[in-house]
Amino acid sequence: MEKELQSILERAKLGAKAVATRADLEAFKARLVGPNGELTRLMKGMADVPKEEKPEVGRRLNEGKKELESLFSGLLEGIELNESAARLGPPVDPSLPSPDGGPGSQHPLAQVREEICSVFRKVGFSVVEGPEVETEYYCFDALNTPSDHPARDLQDTYYLPESARFGNVSKKETERYLLRTHTSSVQIRHMLKTPPPVRVISPGRCFRRDTADATHSANFHQIEGLYVDEDVSVKDLKALLDYFIRTLLGKDARTRFRPHFFPYTEPSFEVDFSSSHLEKLGTDWIEIAGCGIVHPAVFDAVGYDREKYSGFAFGMGIERIAMILFGIDDIRYFYQNDIRFLQQFAR
């Protein structure tokens, strides 16, 4: 009996190797444990086993049966895995390209804007927004710009018709609506609703009535910063812009402050920078920002105490900085949106 059982099990193990499909498995099972199966037959022979041997033989037969069952379930698992794999079809060629689209990209101007914002966030600035349609008050009057200043000319600034009514851009009085020429207007709106101290930057789109060429665009982007506190000085202004320019352009970058004129700051400066990066371009200094100590008249306009507080403001063109950082030689690339351009900045 024992010998026979061993032989069945051994043959079963050998036979299992030939089982590849569910049908094979069924036939294989029938051959062993079916009504006429080899093990079934052996079990039927239990009747002839002497009584005293029955328990031991019965135990052995049961063990044998369990062994076969585990063999069957192992075979079934294998068959199922093979079936799943077969449903996948032939193996993939991993070198084939994915049909799911390439990487997306943020526009280089958006990236530079974000990078600049990050640099200032680290030293406590937060980012504020304001409307692109503005009024003469917020864009000029409150910024100490005389009423006959050339910047207000129809030739330089886009206006909306006298009849234009804007639902969500507030006017001071009956002044005209225009498209903001700088984001300094956001500073006015911010100061009017926030008491000092203030530390904000306002990035955004601005408009000037320029015919498009390699360096001009009728709409462009600026970032303006404003810092108001007690006893803020020219030295603090230089410290911040030095920090900014070194963070953006490398530790070896240097700045140069050139006195300039803006109606809303006094003293006013244009800031040039110089770095090893520029030597390749064959130039010493490149203008990067305008800045100055906020004119007391601006504080008067927003109701800040001009005796107690002082502050500085600065502004820079995002296009210009992007052109310097990426080595782009024509501003019009930014507004064509050729994907071969956009994708160069995917990261």
Binding site: D100, G101, G102, P103, G104, S105, Q106, H107, L109, A110, E132, L179, R205, F207, A218, N219, F334, Y335, N337, I339, L342, Q343, A346
Partner: peptide
């Protein structure tokens, strides 16, 4: 950007 889009800047006019 995560959904494969490329950002554009167009004129406001």
């Amino acid at each position: 950007v995560g959904r494969h889009f490329n950002e554009c800047f167009n004129y406001s006019f």
